[in-house]
């Protein structure tokens, strides 16, 4: 029995409703029919399905990321304005060993890393084991590794694996 991607269907229906801008019963029905048909037809194109285990952990991750986005925006703004003249900021690459294997968790990690200014996803080794990040203000590589591991990776494993 193939799993049915309920979340994708609901998401597509919501997107249809937002784009057309009305929630009349006929429109809801049309959107739902379209999204069910599209999900069933296109499931052959992408057979991987995410397993969302703990929605509440996802909410916790969201708040954590929001706080980190705020903090890193402040840090990068200081660097751009040159307010860190006393110590010299140097950028560099960090290799981070990863324990997550689920591709959806990795994709989420990529979105998190990219949307916090100051870190950019540079490379993932072909066996998905080592992630290379480029960090704008690299003070302590080991601290960076621990941050990724304990702040994001543990929660991601809890959610997806």
């Amino acid at each position: 029995m193939k799993r049915i991607a309920w979340l994708l269907m609901i998401g597509l229906t919501l997107m249809w409703l937002l784009l057309t801008g009305s929630a009349s019963p006929g429109n809801v029905l049309l959107g739902a029919a379209l999204s069910v048909a599209m999900t069933l037809w296109f499931s052959a194109v992408r057979p991987l399905h995410p397993h969302l285990r703990r929605p509440r952990a996802a909410l916790r991750l969201f708040w954590r990321v929001a706080a980190d986005v705020l903090r890193s925006n402040y840090a990068v703004a200081r660097i751009v304005l040159g307010l860190t003249a006393k110590r010299n900021v140097h950028a560099g690459f960090v290799d981070i060993p990863l324990a997550v294997r689920d591709p959806h968790a990795l994709a989420t990690l990529a979105a998190i890393v990219t949307s916090t200014p100051g870190t950019v996803w540079a490379n993932l080794s072909p066996d998905n084991r080592v992630l290379t990040l480029h960090v704008l203000d690299l003070r302590d590589p080991q601290h960076m590794r621990d941050t990724i591991k304990h702040r994001y990776e543990d929660l991601l494993r809890e959610i997806f694996e």
Binding site: N73, V80, A91, T116, P117, T119, L136
Partner: peptide, 24 residues
């Protein structure tokens, strides 16, 4: 500030970072 950083930073890898302030 993000676009100013894009203009001010010295190397390409450093320039990758500031625009994501505007993006997020």
């Amino acid at each position: 500030l993000g676009s100013l950083g894009l203009l001010r930073m010295k190397t390409f890898y450093q320039r990758m970072h500031p625009p994501s302030m505007g993006n997020t």
